[in-house]
Computed example of a mutant assay.
Amino acid sequence: MSDQTTAPSPAVTRRIVSFLHRAWVAELRVYASIGRAIARRPAVPPGGTGIAYHRPVLTVLFIFIGLSAVEIPILDLIVHRWPIVRITLLVLGIWGVTWMLGLLCAMIMRPHAVSPEGIRVRNGLEIDVPISWDDIASVAISRRVDEPKRPRIAEGEYAERMQDETNIEIELERPTLVALPGLAPKGGAHRVDRIRLWADDPRAFLDAARPFLTA
């Protein structure tokens, strides 16, 4: 009786390829963000203004980084008798701390950007959604708290929340495509007519956008 192997379906293959690609891009952005932080060069287009969004999670990130750093010498002390295990855990520990530092740097060095080209909605290592001024009808301060785990895309609306909250609302002139990382239904291109996001300083965001809206 011959052995039969079942090849993965095209959908499964696409998901695996998409995951590996996203992981690779995120890894590169970790080190790029650390480099930007060292050089003090935030990713803001010429003539633009960067608006931070990381304040609500800053304390949590510092706690995770601190715990990860403390964990390295503790584990090293426990497994020092086994060189292979010790080296493996040491490499993984350093990589983990570096990754967390890169995420923190990404949130600081890749802020929301308001520039002559439009608005770039950002979050961490992956999210970077450009919207041109031609597609924007209005920008307003509007604070809203959503239910936990509510999807980013729902009912024609894209919400880039920080701890389930947004405080900026962007009304679009017409249904506009936004592209999110990953495959549908969570990722991929979606047509929306409203975008909500969190800005640490919503007044500064509105002030930066106002000259382009009235031009």
Score class of each variant (00 low, 15 high):
180 L>F: 03
130 P>A: 12
127 I>L: 10
184 A>T: 11
52 A>G: 11
35 G>N: 10
51 I>H: 05
197 L>H: 02
55 R>C: 03
105 C>Q: 01
109 M>S: 06
95 W>G: 07
206 L>K: 06
24 W>H: 09
124 G>V: 04
160 E>D: 11
143 R>W: 01
108 I>W: 04
4 Q>A: 10
193 D>E: 13
192 V>H: 05
51 I>S: 10
181 P>G: 14
109 M>E: 11
113 A>I: 04
168 I>D: 00
181 P>V: 14
72 I>S: 08
198 W>D: 01
30 V>Q: 06
150 R>F: 00
63 I>N: 01
146 D>C: 06
152 R>L: 09
12 V>D: 12
65 I>R: 04
201 D>H: 13
162 M>D: 05
108 I>Q: 10
130 P>S: 11
63 I>R: 03
48 G>R: 04
191 R>C: 14
32 A>Y: 03
58 L>I: 15
208 A>N: 02
59 T>F: 14
104 L>K: 06
174 R>T: 15
73 P>R: 15
101 L>T: 07
41 R>I: 10
132 S>G: 15
212 F>C: 07
188 G>H: 02
211 P>I: 14
111 P>K: 00
58 L>W: 15
156 G>C: 08
93 G>Q: 03
89 L>Q: 11
152 R>C: 13
13 T>Y: 06
10 P>D: 02
134 D>I: 11
198 W>H: 08
19 F>H: 07
79 V>C: 08
102 G>I: 06
34 I>Q: 02
132 S>C: 08
151 P>V: 11
18 S>D: 13
175 P>E: 12
74 I>V: 15
120 R>N: 13
136 I>V: 15
41 R>N: 10
26 A>C: 12
171 E>C: 09
8 P>E: 05
151 P>R: 06
134 D>R: 08
61 L>N: 04
191 R>T: 15
112 H>N: 07
48 G>N: 06
38 I>W: 13
155 E>T: 03
112 H>W: 04
153 I>R: 04
